[in-house]
Simulated assay, not measured.
Amino acid sequence: MKFLKITIFLLLVSSNFLQAKTDTIEVFSKAMNKSLKATVIKPAGIEGLDHEFPSVYVLHGAWGNYLDWHKNVKKNNLLQELADLYQIILVTPGVAPFSYYYDSPLMDSVQYETYISKELVPYVDANFPTIKDKNARAITGLSMGGHGAMMIAAKHPELFSAAGSMSGVMNIDVRTWVGNESTQEERRKSQREMLGEIEYDYPFSPYTAVGLVNQMKQNGIALLIDCGVDDFLIETNRQLHQLLLENDTPHEYTERPGAHTWDYWTDALPFHILFINQVFERNKIRLHD
């Protein structure tokens, strides 16, 4: 019995050691004069190893925070399992609600494009064993975070080799959303406060993903877009898909059953990480050039 207890104890210690480790960090943003939290999920057993890993930034949605991808997914330890499986470092930043990850021309407190691209990425690269090369770095996100991922990657091709969107707000124009009429005017009001008057019709504002399709083509970043057919943002995703087809931008586009829910995103994230990992595998030769 004593031997059995010791064996069980060692197994528990071993399984805990082998699980990917999550660190909570706090990064000061000079652009906004405030600190923001994020989590960094590392593959298991990397402490003390002289080895660097690819990194993926996973962005949350409008009502979320830096812990969303840990607390709300429907599969326990999903991020940790993905970090271990693909030997990657995952980063989940936190930003303000309804900020859409852009830099406001009117509000110093809303400079999230700058924060992600010029403050958070350098901080993570300086403090964690990441491969400091765009060919081993990617970004994806859900809803508002999908918008952020596509927009930031389009504007900063020097940082990312792949970008993804799950149920993303590919057009911040609330007229393209299906339903949710009660909240649409609130969103438009907050957009005016942060952006002022912008162009919502074609060729669209650069503050929205559909206004950046030319940059997406020029940059050659691998793109993955998916959305549930019952999602209120489905038309914005179809619109971006059509614009990318029209300007001959290579991209992966998927519609499947589902709505704007954590059930959908729990299923979507492994698909995105698989896609990103395939991009990293193709990029390996470039890392050694």
Rank of each mutant, 00 (worst) to 15 (best):
N283P: 02
D267Q: 07
D103L: 06
W265L: 00
Y57N: 03
F17S: 04
H288K: 13
P43T: 02
A222Q: 01
E281Y: 12
M151K: 08
F160V: 01
D103F: 10
I46R: 04
G45R: 05
Q87S: 13
L224E: 06
G64H: 03
G45K: 05
E255Y: 13
S55I: 14
N277Y: 15
N237G: 07
A154F: 06
L11S: 11
H156D: 00
E199D: 15
E186R: 03
M151Q: 10
L269D: 03
D231I: 06
I6D: 12
F3I: 13
A38C: 07
G164I: 05
I276M: 08
L243R: 09
K2S: 02
A38Y: 05
L269A: 02
T130D: 04
F28T: 09
E246Y: 09
L12W: 04
L11I: 12
K134F: 01
M107K: 14
A209K: 09
D23E: 13
L12G: 05
A62G: 13
V174A: 15
D231V: 01
H288P: 01
Y57F: 13
L79S: 04
C227L: 11
D289Y: 15
D173H: 14
W265V: 02
A20W: 08
G228R: 10
L142C: 00
Q215G: 03
T7E: 10
S35H: 11
D231N: 02
K118R: 13
K37L: 09
S165G: 12
W69P: 05
Q111R: 13
W69R: 09
V40S: 04
